[in-house]
Every structure is written in structure tokens, then in C-alpha cells.
Write a protein that binds this DNA or RNA. Structure first.
Length: 155
DNA sequence: GCCAACGTTGGC
DNA sequence: GCCAACGTTGGC
């Protein structure tokens, strides 16, 4: 059991898309960064994931989902009509993986990046460091708890 | 829309 | 293997 954070632009996929159909799963595809991919490959069914909304009006953590299916080859890499198509990827030699995620909780208010930067437990987390571009970030138990606790306090 | 920071690409 | 050029990310 591990903890993660995944970034998304809410126009593409938001916590509301998960909440709209809590019983179903959503494929998290399109990750095209090797470090992020390697983290995806470490994910195990049951792991919990913060959903972080980036490049939008309310930047921050919007809720929690969990891993419903562990890593498998991301189909979009083989699809020439997809923006995520990768000409160097073949089904025999896939480069990129996806996971399936399922809704757990939506925070009553988005826990803003500004708030997150104030949490002492997150001081070493890549999320709050300048210039960070990693879209999949592992969270320690204490980092995870610090965020949950703060999200409850700002209800 | 701007631009700093970062990852990737490709020539050498 | 170096590194300049380029494309992308993401906060502001």
C-alpha cells in the first residue's frame, strides 16, 4: 500500500469525472515521461492517489482516487490518431504504461497550492518545489496524512 | 500570454 | 558523451 499524487488539467480529466460515476474506472493514459512512467509501474491495486488540478483557476489537490488496475501498456501509444501516439512504440516493445483509477473522495474545497506550500511535511516534496514538472509523485505516509488533515481543517 | 525550468533530441 | 536547440510544463 502506497500513496501517490497525479497531476491533471481539469479540462481533460478532473475529480468530478471520477465522482460522476464512482463505480466505474478511468484509464490514466498519456504519461510520456520516463520518471513518471516508472512510478506508474510501481503502483499496486489499492494504492491511493491525490488528484491535483494544474493549469487552471483552482490549482491544488481536489480529492482522492485509488488504483483499480495496475500498470499495463497504454493503448494510446499505438494509435496514430491519438495526440499520445509514439512512433517508436510497438505492441511488442511498448514504452508507456497506464493504470485504471476509481473514485474515493472529493474534497469540499480544493486544497490550494498556496496552502500546500505552507505545510512543513511537504517541504521536500517535488510538488511544491520551483520548476518541478513531474506529473506522478510518490507521497510518504506523513506527507499523505498532513494533506488529509489540512483538507479536513479547511472544510 | 509570459517565461523560467526542465526533459529530450540530435549533430558533432 | 557533450551540449545547444527545441518543445513542454505549469505557475503567475
Amino acid at each position: 500500500m502506497a500513496y501517490w499524487l497525479m497531476k491533471t488539467e481539469p479540462d481533460e480529466c478532473s475529480i468530478d469525472d471520477f465522482a460522476a460515476d464512482p463505480a466505474s474506472t478511468i484509464r490514466w493514459d498519456g504519461v510520456r515521461n520516463y520518471q513518471a512512467r516508472n512510478f506508474i509501474r510501481d503502483m499496486v491495486v489499492g494504492d491511493e492517489v491525490f488528484i491535483y488540478h494544474s493549469s487552471c483557476k483552482q490549482i491544488g489537490i481536489a480529492g482522492v482516487v485509488k488504483v483499480a488496475a495496475s500498470a499495463y501498456p497504454d493503448p494510446s501509444q499505438f494509435d496514430p490518431s491519438s495526440p499520445y501516439w509514439d512512433a517508436k512504440s510497438t505492441p511488442r516493445n511498448p514504452r508507456w504504461d497506464a493504470v485504471d483509477l476509481r473514485f474515493v473522495t472529493k474534497f469540499k474545497t480544493v486544497l490550494s497550492l498556496e496552502q500546500l506550500k505552507k505545510l512543513p511535511d511537504l517541504i521536500d516534496n517535488p510538488l511544491v518545489r520551483k520548476g518541478n514538472r513531474l506529473s506522478v509523485i510518490p507521497f510518504s505516509e506523513s506527507e499523505w496524512q498532513a494533506v488529509l488533515k489540512t483538507s479536513n481543517n479547511i472544510e
